[in-house]
């Protein structure tokens, strides 16, 4: 992998620190007029999501991290791993629970997901922003209520639970925003 000089630092650049891949969030050049120049950077650990501060002597280098975002199709879960497929090469990749994280509850078979690969291995999985799912269980709503005020919990086919308006019934198909976990609308089959 390439190495990057501090002169190439900018937000979004992926570098290795202490064996983990990081993305640069912020980069500031500081230098006393007669003294040593430094780059103060804020970096986000791509495994944990935590942001920390680091400082480099200006002109020093950091190893680049082989991190790429790819679109993969979710195939199935075998109880331990989530299996994905590259639709161009048909190559299959497996992701563990740490990589899938909260996206797990939004993964429906055949969904196209953005998967971040580090050295070719899934590091994190982002569910599609919107998913269409069938409600498998929710309390019967109050007749005549179409306002949606209040709402009630509904369990979806993947096990995810979202709040839906009272008029939405079991067996109906809905659209959900996975970033907020909120109901968007009913979807006609």
């Amino acid at each position: 992998m390439a190495t990057y000089s501090t002169n190439e630092f900018k937000s979004g650049l992926k570098i290795m620190l202490d064996g983990d891949p990081y993305a640069i969030v912020e980069n500031e050049f500081v230098k006393p007029g007669k003294g040593q120049a430094f780059n103060r950077v804020k970096v986000r650990n791509l495994k944990t999501g935590r942001t920390i501060e680091r400082t480099f002597k200006s002109g020093d280098t950091a190893e680049g991290a082989d991190v790429v975002d790819v679109e993969l199709q979710y195939l199935y879960n075998d109880g331990e791993y989530w299996h994905f497929m590259d639709q161009q090469s048909y190559e299959q990749l497996t992701a563990d629970a740490a990589a899938v994280g909260d996206a797990a509850k939004w993964l429906k078979e055949e969904a196209i997901c953005q998967v971040t690969l580090w050295n070719g291995v899934p590091l994190s999985v982002a569910a599609p922003n919107f998913v269409i799912m069938t409600i498998v269980e929710t309390d019967p709503g109050v007749r005549g209520d179409t306002s949606g005020g209040g709402g009630k919990p509904a369990t979806l086919e993947t096990g995810a639970v979202v709040r839906v308006p009272l008029f939405v019934q079991s067996g109906e198909v809905i659209k959900v925003d996975t970033r907020t976990g909120e109901y968007v609308s009913r979807v006609k089959e």
Binding site: V30, G35, Q36, F38, T55, K57
Partner: peptide
Amino acid sequence: ANPWLDLLLTH
């Protein structure tokens, strides 16, 4: 010591 003093000064 000077780069260390500069580090403390700038940060």
